[in-house]
Write a protein that binds this DNA or RNA. Structure first.
Lengths: 323, 323
DNA sequence: TTGTATGCGTTATCAC
DNA sequence: GTGATAACGCATACAA
């Protein structure tokens, strides 16, 4: 037995099985009926030759699709530090996977232009701009933008930041709070919407500062505020992770939550290292992910897709109380 | 102006520029010198036609590479809940990205057989088996296994679980501890190695139970142990996240750390929501990621690669004290 | 430096 | 149900 100098191809299998190339192809793809006997001969020949199925590269070229969807998320360790991002990613991956599509992580610094992507999802976690957007538009790659500003040609999936934020503010107002501070994300579409919602109720709300959705970052941010004895009775954060940081830092300084200070979050994720339940704006993370993935699938199919805005819901926990 | 019925190809550009197909190709790839004048004509023609560069699908088939490396991680939200996993993923992504390769997430339930991957990284976070391994071997896809058991044909990247665990155990023994419990991961190569290291010092160590690397899971696990008043003076965990869960649950029950109970972790990640520094085994997470990615790159190039075992280092913090 | 000619391995269209 | 044939769009070995 002489080792084959190159990997066997479908043509080799067809020859060995004594059938035509097209028949061998059909035996594997099942795109058209093939007699059981023939299929068996093909499969046997494939096994004998060590043929491991149609070459995906060739199939992709022929079909004009790569079977891969890109997702732009900035730096990974930052983007996924917040469990809210993970929950959504999980849902996206699940829906795409069920359709046989792979999910490719796109760091914003390397060039995805060389990769054949069937669609690209932009998850705007507090970012304003993304490189390579024009590139993708030029290539006619279907684009789905999550929580982003309006981009021509893209499908937009969003949540109702503004209403959620306003509902939370109303809750605080009902509790008697009048001086509120807010910890923000970097300037971005969701941040602007949420701040607008907050200011519907508290036009004079004070911005404590901006930081990533990260416990340590939030702690570092508010520590200065506390030192300056910022005069708010409530602090509104943009994520539960941020809120957890604020709660922890407050306690470290002997400030009781919610007796001395009310703290609110956003997202509705579990915070097991906190022994109280945060008052927060719950967003449908898995639903957002599924909707996003389904929009990408539809765009790939060529179906028209409407933009979607998902509702959110205020959940009152133990981290807010009377002023 | 009549809209073009199909997207322009390199051949169209070549024709429009009055050069040959190969010259046009070279103008884009730069693989061989092309006169500046010619290149300019090609670029101009491309712009005029709205040609957005060589089709990646075609290039991939021609070159026999996809430019994508897969990484198998199980369910995403579980795999990445631990910051240790993220730190490593980040390093992998960075190194691969610098070489123009994309990183594709492989959930273990969907079939990657349809995707053309240049290499696959298996990150064994406490898992024993992975579907589609045989498939990949059959396809001759380079495999890199991180912290996994010996797999024929794969390159292995590992850390010195056993020594690290033994060093930690020795530290506890020095402190006078004699009755230690351990929280484990699911049965897996790293778990077995670490337990062996622990038993070098404490042959009688008690297994409290197994759980994922997750704060809530660890809390849930040890709560029963505390209730049964498990008689250990120290608990060794398999991740800092697990250790944090144990510390939090201990405190919730009025058990002081480290006065009443010493708790140790593994990894050396930041735990901002804990106000003490964990005693832990620090592993080079970014280095592990870089090494893994470089191994994948080498395997793709066809270079031989040796297996690597990276050293770890004991870091004594405030969570362990005299028995 | 440029042009000519193949072939990468498959799927789809058509006829039988 | 099966077979012949034509693309898919490009990169490269080779000749000029």
């Amino acid at each position: 037995m002489s080792g084959p100098s190159r990997a066997p191809t479908l043509a080799d299998v067809a020859t060995a099985a004594g059938v035509s190339l097209s028949t061998a192809s059909l035996a594997f793809s099942g795109n058209k009926p093939v007699s059981a006997a023939t299929r068996e001969r093909v499969v046997a020949a494939a096994a004998a030759l060590g043929y491991s199925g149609p070459n995906p590269l060739a199939r992709n070229l022929r079909q004009g699709r790569s079977g891969v969807v890109g997702i732009a998320v900035g730096q990974l360790s930052t983007a996924f530090r917040d469990p809210a991002a993970l929950a959504m990613l999980d849902a996206i991956s699940e829906v795409l996977g069920a359709s046989g599509l792979g999910l490719l992580l796109m760091s914003d610094d390397d060039d995805h232009a060389r990769l054949p992507l069937d669609a690209v999802i932009y998850d705007i976690c507090g970012r304003e701009t993304w490189a390579a957007y024009d590139d993708l538009v030029a290539r006619d790659v279907p684009l789905v933008v999550v929580e982003g500003p309006a981009w021509p040609g893209a499908t937009h999936i969003d949540i109702d930041h503004r209403s959620g934020s306003a509902a939370l503010a109303a809750h605080l107002h009902d509790l008697g709070h009048r001086r509120v501070g807010t910890v923000t994300l970097a300037a971005s579409h969701p941040q602007r919407e949420r701040e607008a919602g907050l200011r519907e109720v508290f036009p004079e709300a004070t911005v404590v500062g901006a930081c990533d959705s990260d416990v340590a970052a939030a702690q570092a941010l508010v520590t200065g505020w506390f030192a300056r004895s910022g005069d708010a009775t409530a602090i509104v954060c943009q994520s539960d992770v941020q809120a957890a940081g604020v709660v922890l830092e407050a306690r470290r300084r002997g400030i009781r939550v919610p007796e001395d200070l009310s703290v609110a979050g956003f997202d509705g994720v579990a915070t097991p290292w906190l022994d109280l339940e945060l008052t927060t704006v719950v967003q449908p993370l898995a639903g957002k992910g599924r909707t996003t993935a389904e929009a990408a699938l539809a765009r790939i199919r060529g179906t028209a897709v409407d933009d979607v805005v998902l509702p959110v819901e205020l959940r009152i926990g133990d981290s807010t109380g009377p002023a």
